[in-house]
Design a protein around this nucleic acid. Structure first.
Ligand SMILES: NC(=O)c1ccc[n+]([C@@H]2O[C@H](COP(=O)([O-])OP(=O)(O)OC[C@H]3O[C@@H](n4cnc5c(N)ncnc54)[C@H](O)[C@@H]3O)[C@@H](O)[C@H]2O)c1
Ligand SMILES: NC(=O)c1ccc[n+]([C@@H]2O[C@H](COP(=O)([O-])OP(=O)(O)OC[C@H]3O[C@@H](n4cnc5c(N)ncnc54)[C@H](O)[C@@H]3O)[C@@H](O)[C@H]2O)c1
Lengths: 213, 213
DNA sequence: GGGAATATGTGAAAAAGTTATCAAATAACC
DNA sequence: GGTTATTTGATAACTTTTTCACATATTCCC
């Protein structure tokens, strides 16, 4: 359990990729696989996969490969997804509603259990089985409902304010869809998803053809 | 124009960050800035910024710094966002509708001009001023409407099929929200946004406290 | 049980990316 | 106009990440 080395953030991201590939194999009733086969499946190199796994221990059988179910369970435990996570949503607008209505997260163990907004027309309602509270109540509501992860889907101008409310409620992990930096205490982790930046990335490679591929 | 070195993908992503920071400064009527000030603004090091810019040329004035407007224009040109991009949307479900209704992209020059779906109840309708066509018509509709970037917001099981349709319509740049790999010809660039993976990333750091921060 | 085949885990090499350093260039000031 | 203070751009040093290569462990099969 006591891991010496610092784990690269890219390795953590790839762990998710491996988990998904293993889920697929498990669904297909495949019992064993190898770093080589996995590499082909996910589009990476075998060495990369073995190196990533080596940060966390030894999961394979030389001459045989990996037992799909076993490796899946190990990686799920490492990622902390061998459990259910309760998620709080701030901002039930267009994007927020799409997230609420999406059942793909629940399938992966992420369950939106409470929502917050600022709009009086929405506060008090229940959408998709999730009750919407006033964001000002977050600091009181959150500690009671057990949510540990927050999602911010409010306009950029309100993002800092909404984030502060979630942090005041005790959340330490936040996924934000709002463009722009959010300031949080050092013990809070924020992951941003900036869709405009993804489009700009595509724009770059579309404009400068031949730099990739 | 003829750049010798290969540009790191991370540099391209940071270019977007710089552009946003410069936009902000321009709105505040700031005329000049420096790598040092920019670094503080975006949370990077000054050396990193100068290095990134150096891939593309010389934009600064020693002893003075950078002219905000000038640098913004240069970076916008490099990223290819000094123009309007027409975007095609495949899948007008919960997420697709949120994207359609979002005006933030248009502000950055990305304009959804056409949508595709498979659901007969949606085909033929016009939502948010955007007409929804049968995805099967994509190969005929796309060449006429000028869209160059595609966004995939269909269920994972249909993602490959929808992508094939967009590619058949001539698109070479695609942003996909569907989980899982999509196979495309080598001249097509796909950027995936996997929200479940972002949540798993948060789960990891929430589970293994103290590995970051 | 032994030998061939296979695929891991790991240390070393290579590549990529980031940070530090500094000479050269420019501006501001007197 | 010359001196000083800045800040760039480039190079060098360093760090991180990826790839390579192979000894080692295990299975499979005869
Ligand atoms: N819709 C998209 O497709 C899309 C795409 C990329 C990024 N985003 C980003 O996601 C965020 C949400 O986008 P949207 O389109 O859903 O916006 P929206 O305007 O549809 O919804 C925003 C919601 O947040 C609520 N809100 C506002 N201030 C609040 C506060 N302080 N606390 C709690 N709730 C508050 C509003 O009442 C509203 O319900 C924005 O930051 C946007 O930039 C959205
Ligand atoms: N909704 C979310 O918040 C969310 C979050 C993360 C990822 N995603 C992903 O985004 C995608 C869309 O999610 P959603 O919630 O909007 O789904 P949805 O079911 O609400 O909408 C899907 C839409 O795609 C259409 N469609 C199905 N097959 C098609 C095809 N072959 N061609 C064209 N259109 C087709 C459907 O008619 C429907 O309108 C999914 O892949 C999902 O995994 C969604």
């Amino acid at each position: 359990m006591a891991r010496a080395k610092k784990i690269p953030s890219t390795t953590v991201s790839r762990l998710s990729v491996y988990v998904r590939a293993l889920q697929k194999l498990r669904n297909e009733a495949v019992v064993t696989t190898s770093s080589e086969k996995l590499a082909e499946q996910v589009g990476l190199t075998a060495a990369q996969i073995r190196k990533d796994l080596a940060y966390f221990g030894q999961f394979g059988v030389p001459g045989r490969g990996y037992y799909v179910e076993n490796l899946h369970n190990e990686l799920a435990m490492i990622l902390g997804i061998n459990r259910r996570w309760e998620v709080a949503l701030a901002g039930v607008g267009h994007l927020g509603y799409a997230l609420l209505a999406y059942n793909g997260f629940k399938k992966q163990g992420f369950d939106v259990v409470v929502a917050f907004d600022k709009d009086p027309a929405k506060i008090g309602q229940t959408w998709e089985g999730v009750k919407i509270y006033d964001i000002a109540e977050a600091r009181h509501v959150l500690p009671e409902c057990g949510a540990e992860i927050g999602i911010i889907a409010v306009p950029a101008a309100s993002a800092q304010e909404a984030c502060d409310a979630l942090v005041a409620g005790g959340l330490k992990s936040i996924l934000s869809f709002a463009p722009g930096r959010i300031i949080v205490p050092p013990d809070v982790t924020v992951k941003r998803v900036e869709l405009a930046m993804e489009l700009e990335w595509l724009s770059y490679y579309a404009t400068n053809i031949g730099e990739r591929g």
